[in-house]
Design a protein around this nucleic acid. Sequence first.
DNA 1: ATATGTGCAAATGGTTTGCAGTGAG
DNA 2: CTCACTGCAAACCATTTGCACATAT
Lengths: 146, 146
Amino acid sequence: MADHRLRLEKMIETLRETGHRLTPQRLAVLKVLSLSEGHPSAEQVYEQVKDDFPTTSLATIYKTINLLKSVDQVLELGFAHASSRYDGNKPYPHPHVICTRCGRVVDPEHTAMRELSRDVAIDTGFRITHHRLDFYGLCPDCQEAD
Amino acid sequence: MADHRLRLEKMIETLRETGHRLTPQRLAVLKVLSLSEGHPSAEQVYEQVKDDFPTTSLATIYKTINLLKSVDQVLELGFAHASSRYDGNKPYPHPHVICTRCGRVVDPEHTAMRELSRDVAIDTGFRITHHRLDFYGLCPDCQEAD
DNA sequence: ATATGTGCAAATGGTTTGCAGTGAG
DNA sequence: CTCACTGCAAACCATTTGCACATAT
């Protein structure tokens, strides 16, 4: 579906452009994040990276993910009572469908709200119960403080 | 704006209907959550409750909030790297505008996405940089497992 | 060569939990 | 009178951090 190789190259290029080193551990993390169709947690990335790189630490996974976040090469889906899930394929805001039972995270094919919810249900087979829509930015006071 | 007294009564009624006791501490939490125009954190609720009730513990605040969540009388806005914020006035899903600098949470007046974002910016004065839209429900596998 | 990255282990911080004591119904 | 609730302190757990060592550039 998505061109994973291109994503990986884009990540690597971005790290270079921003003056960061490409260590083997980092490369392994980039690969998992760029190749994964799913939305893995840091722990899941860790498990995969350990296969080829047994000495890797979870801390390094987090550090690499944070680095990628800082250069907008990975999207973090943060939750209050569960670990964050990461999307390295589409590192820009887009809708997600999240199973409240098993935690599965799916990207709906369609991407406009009453009808959108219905479309998402049809696309994904989920039984939609609720949603979350947040806008982020600078409040008036914080714009002044710039 | 919102009818806070009605919200408080609704909360109390719901607790009664669901067989829960109304302790003074609980009542204090309900008041803060129902009266607040903002979207306080558990800590902020705690600070307010302590004013009238110095012996109250943060644990009790959390327990009460969780109780209210379980009967759909408060909406939790969960974040990965910050404490959750709670809305006792509108305990159903609705858009929020969140300042990425100071954490301020505002309810936009308008509520349909390209244009919605612009409307929200006009309504709130925020400079919108990104958004989050999640749908929650049961994935196909979990529907079967019911 | 040298600063950046790694890995360990300890710290963090919001939230939850166990349990003995308290009080609402 | 009883059982749900409170408050304390300890536990939890995802994530972050400090630091000595290693290594990409």
